[in-house]
Write a protein that binds this DNA or RNA. Structure first.
Lengths: 182, 182
DNA sequence: GTCTATATCACGATAGAC
DNA sequence: GTCTATCGTGATATAGAC
């Protein structure tokens, strides 16, 4: 049972999302995971190794999510937009990990590895959306709308008053071709 | 002439955007502004005061930019999307300051002040877009597309191959009502 | 107004007990 | 496999010279 490793990664995500990378110290992550700092460092031998572990998790979950986008019953766009919205992530899904990794993107050496991983995620999402929307620009617009929602979640900025994800999807359906039945 | 103060803020923006908040130490900012650390601390008495100074700049520039969105000759949406795209900011404009401030948003005490300032910026942008797009959801979609582009810039993720801002605007014009002539 | 110290503290990482 | 104790580094901020 390697449950401690996953608990540490869960805690790392939580601290990154709720308090930011500046607060994501080894002490804080260890406390949130309810292990000692030494225990954390047994599983991840350095802070860089911890970040690498989170990126590996992101890659795994991104591939699984791309498959979920394609298989979504009410269409790729609806699934993608819903999971991008604040609170729309599913437990064990890619959304929470993605939001945590976004906070690690900067100009440092590990920040470059983060950007590489994010580029793969974006490409997989885009391809999955293209399976439903054959117009490349429309697929890109749908992806950008989802990214905009991610940015709102990332910064905690409130949505415009009276507007929510369902209003968004309703209007988008007016303009986008409907998902074709298999 | 308070030129040194502005130089420090310019340097702070540069370091935040290019190397991230973890690298934005007083030493690094002072070096980039070509003043000593003591010189920097004369103008901004603490790191918090430096962040507050940047937020004040963001508020000033956001108000000016909201006016520019409304007055743009080729329409509010086109102006907003162009300035949101990588490299689309104008010198002294809000884009660069906005991107720098995005990196400061976290769960700390000053992070809360950052999110408050970002909420004002988002509301001003939205109102300015509403002046052209009377449908609130369409205005929101346009804003989210711009936010998605900001996120791409923030993380340095490449755009989908073959796609650029002009393709984006061209397709959006197909679906959005054209800007009405004054 | 701008600089050079320097005090203080928090973080990452190591060593070694259990 | 997990813990406590400790060291070295680098960051913020202060004091005070020029």
């Amino acid at each position: 049972m390697t449950g401690a490793r996953d608990r540490v990664l869960d805690a790392y995500e939580t601290v990154l999302i709720e308090h930011g990378p500046g607060s994501a110290t080894l002490d804080a992550v260890a406390a949130a995971a309810e292990v000692s700092k030494g225990g954390l460092l047994y599983h991840f031998s350095s802070k860089d190794a911890l970040a690498t572990g989170l990126l590996d998790r992101l890659r795994e979950r991104s591939s699984a999510d791309a498959a979920a986008i394609r298989a979504a019953p009410d269409g790729a766009v609806a699934y993608y937009i819903r999971t991008s919205a604040p609170g729309g992530g599913v437990p064990g899904g890619v959304t929470r990990t993605y939001l945590a990794v976004l906070r690690l993107a900067d100009g440092t050496e590990t920040g470059q590895a983060v950007r590489d991983a994010l580029a793969v995620v974006h490409a997989e999402e885009y391809d999955a959306l293209r399976a439903e929307l054959t117009d490349p620009v429309l697929a890109w617009i749908a992806q950008l709308v989802g990214d905009g929602l991610y940015l709102r979640t990332l910064t905690g900025t409130p949505l415009p008053p009276g507007l929510g994800v369902e209003e968004l999807l309703s209007t988008m359906r007016t303009y986008l071709p409907p998902p074709s039945a298999t």
